[in-house]
């Protein structure tokens, strides 16, 4: 589904990704771990199309299409979803309105008619229940005045409603208490399926107790230094990142 080959990316003069390769197949969950500054978040942003990065080498294909040639909004409509580490507040744009506009943009792309307003609201309410979100959410601005945990739950809610094919979650677990972490994990797990894949960018192993990955990769210096199964995350939790870093050097 997603194939990254020899990807090199920089921000200004700073090289952040140096020859990263990764293949994610439908149905799989990949965890990208690594020390601070190893390029985890850059990878997530580059995949979603955030401006400000220069790609000097490498290719990324999504279902065989050149992902890097697409605008961020086109990627989203093709089924790529980025869950932000720091979701922005947009007062004045209503949460539900954004959700509906996003769903309709994707439907239009697929040649489907707009969603029925009544059915849509029912769907949002159902997903909100799963994410334990308050009814007042419906009338508020996007992330406006939300706590850190509420913002993260809102990211997952958006993902649940949009049902992307590839969910990229950038440190969704950071700043969450254990209850919120479980809610977020339940949300992700509810979407897991043969047609869908996830890339979980995380610093800690904690989230992976609840969303068990098929593959774990450790990023060091902008490339994958080590890959393994879920047990690698446990080993990292026990031993830290230093040994992987040293091995990579």
């Amino acid at each position: 589904m997603l194939k990254i080959e020899n990807l090199h990316a920089s921000v200004g003069d700073k090289k952040v990704l140096s020859g990263l390769s990764l293949e994610v197949k439908a149905g799989e969950v990949h965890a990208i771990m690594g020390p601070n500054g190893s390029g985890k978040s850059t990878l997530a942003h580059v995949l979603a199309g955030r401006p400000g990065y220069t790609i000097s080498q490498g290719t990324v294909t999504f279902d065989g299409r050149d992902l890097l040639a697409l605008e961020p909004e086109q990627r989203a409509r093709e089924g790529v979803f980025l869950g932000f580490q720091y979701p922005v507040e947009i007062p004045g744009v209503n949460n539900v309105y954004l959700l509906k506009a996003a769903v309709n943009a994707a439907r239009k792309h697929r040649g489907l008619p707009e969603v029925d307003a009544f059915d849509f609201l029912a769907l949002v309410r159902e997903k909100m229940k799963l994410m334990r979100m308050d009814e007042s959410f419906l009338s508020r601005g996007v992330n406006e005045g939300f706590s850190g945990g509420e913002k993260k739950r809102n990211e997952i809610l958006q993902m649940l409603v949009l049902e992307p094919r590839l969910g990229i979650l950038d440190e969704t677990d950071s700043g969450l208490d254990i209850d919120a972490l479980k809610i977020v994990a339940a949300g992700v797990n509810s979407l897991r399926g043969a047609e869908r894949a996830f890339v979980l960018v995380t610093h800690y192993q904690r989230l992976l107790d609840y969303v068990v990955p098929d593959h774990v990769h450790v990023l060091v210096g902008g490339r994958i230094a080590r890959s393994g199964d879920a047990s690698l995350a446990l080993e990292l939790e026990r031993r830290g990142y230093d040994w992987v870093t040293e091995e990579a050097a």
Partner: peptide, 14 residues
């Protein structure tokens, strides 16, 4: 720019 990218990343037209 951050707000704009957030909306784009949800598939909203520019």
């Amino acid at each position: 720019d951050n707000m704009l990218f957030y909306l784009l990343s949800r598939g909203i037209e520019r």
